[in-house]
Design a binder for these strands. Structure first.
Lengths: 110, 110
DNA sequence: CTCATTAGTAAGTCGTGACTTACGGTAAGT
DNA sequence: ACTTACCGTAAGTCACGACTTACTAATGAG
């Protein structure tokens, strides 16, 4: 089943600051692993491991070109996260409305 | 400065699975700490600590009622995350377009 | 056919943070 | 005033994961 753009994995992946940095750099420009590592305070293998996590989370796609692997963001993973956020945002608004009504009922029973 | 609805903190906060569970329960219904803990596989102090992180991330608001503290989601924190995602999503699309053009130029120089 | 460049993997270290139990503090009920 | 219920904080433990330094593999150039 590998990855199905599950928001769960995406949020866990972006929980790490280094992965967020990689994510932001890729949003500005698709890049190879070494290129990313040169602009970050971690080693190249570390970047490689982070990219694997991001890929499994459905946030990143890779395409090999020669001996290099160009990584770019996967809009589908981002869209899945946004849908998840929107759903809970809407649910929270509804739930708070019900909650407020209940409170009002308790304080003004009639 | 406390919290300013920074997406950075919000993503880090939702990176933890227990905090995501709390977040989802609060989206369905504002709840007190003990009520949340009763439905989760962790102790009440653990829930308390998670709620503090969520609050500092701008994702949650609390209102004291008697000896209890009712927690509910803060739409502003969610909106900040969504804006961040949308910005990077748009940037990624533009960057990929430029990237594709560059690739085409390199393969068909004229 | 080397040699150089790029990148993923293995193995091991180490700090962080997610948990626990114990405690103190506040509000409501009797 | 005493008890009960609810909650945050302190302190300490422990596992996980984010790093590192090897090593191996694959592609391109000379």
């Amino acid at each position: 089943m590998a990855n199905a753009y599950s928001t769960i994995d995406a949020l866990a992946a972006l929980g790490d600051p280094t992965r967020r940095a990689i994510f932001e750099r890729l949003s500005a420009k698709p890049s190879a692993v070494g290129e990313l590592a040169r602009g970050l305070p971690v080693s190249r293998p570390a970047v490689s491991q982070h990219l694997r996590v991001l890929k499994q989370a459905g946030l990143v796609r890779e395409l090999p070109v020669g001996t290099r692997r160009i990584y770019r963001l996967d809009p589908r993973g981002i869209a899945a996260m946004r849908d998840w956020l929107d759903a809970h945002w809407a649910a929270a608004l509804d739930a708070f409305k019900d909650f407020a009504d209940t409170q009002a009922d308790q304080e003004m029973p009639s």
